[in-house]
Design a protein around this nucleic acid. Structure first.
Lengths: 134, 134
DNA sequence: ATTGACATTTGCCATTTGGCGAATTATAAT
DNA sequence: ATTATAATTCGCCAAATGGCAAATGTCAAT
């Protein structure tokens, strides 16, 4: 292997598998992915889907986010944190009281509430601004 | 919308799109994903690959990790939101999606949600238990 | 009612993924 | 050298994804 060469995902996966002293067959057993598919992934003949990546991450000792980033499915983690900050620009933060009240409800109810809110927003859109002042 | 039903990924995506006041065509332009594919995803006729999720996450205001977790591609939700969720633990857990949607709203709207919740509870009280099972 | 613009859905098909089973290669034992 | 076993690769095809173009639905204006 050429040390100056950027490794493809398949090469990284093969390298890591060998580091873990696993054959393709053993990794297949541990991950539930077929040996032939693993071989093709390593050779670059197939590109693994997210479902496959998730299955091989554990046995290969990868963090899922890391492997998804290597595959190009996720942006690199540190910009993600920046984005997270940006995603709160509008309202900023969640009202603590609202969060507390909702967290005591089942998930179905929490999401139902969001559905109703969405509906109300749609309806509120159709109300002229003058009427809103009444 | 059936309040007793867990939302599918497609339903979440549609809901979020409507929350952002986007048509499928507008989201298509912003994300580079075809309108027909978006429609099928929302209707549950197709399941989005990781590549598609990555492209729609930004325009829909999702954190990538969060959307991947909703799709079942990643096992852990976004750590940031999980931490925030933990700080509101009053006995339950706040759904990450719900927390995200609400944190984008002004505080007045967030607190209006409590009224909506009370309303739903009041309505549920007035419905005989047999009717709730339908 | 019709018409036009816009939004959504559907038909179709090219491409890609993923697994079964067979073929080939590699390795160890004799 | 041969033989047996393990490991990897290859042929093939079903299933799923994703986009183009057409069809259908919705809504507002006339």
């Amino acid at each position: 292997m050429d040390s100056g060469k950027i490794l493809s995902l398949g090469e990284i996966i093969r390298q890591q598998r060998l580091m873990m002293s696993l054959t393709q067959g053993e990794l297949a057993k541990k991950s539930g992915v077929s040996p032939s598919h693993l071989g093709r992934i390593e050779k670059g003949e197939r590109f693994p889907s997210a479902r496959i990546l998730r299955r091989i991450a554990g046995p290969l000792g990868f963090d899922e986010n890391e492997l998804f980033a290597l595959a190009g499915y996720l942006s690199s983690p540190s910009p993600g944190i920046a984005e997270e900050g940006a995603s709160y620009v509008g309202g900023g933060r969640l009202d603590p009281y609202v969060g507390k009240v909702l967290s005591q409800e089942p998930v179905e109810v929490q999401r139902a509430v969001i559905g109703v809110l969405s509906l109300l927003k749609g309806i509120a859109k159709g109300i002229p601004q003058e009427r809103l002042k009444d």
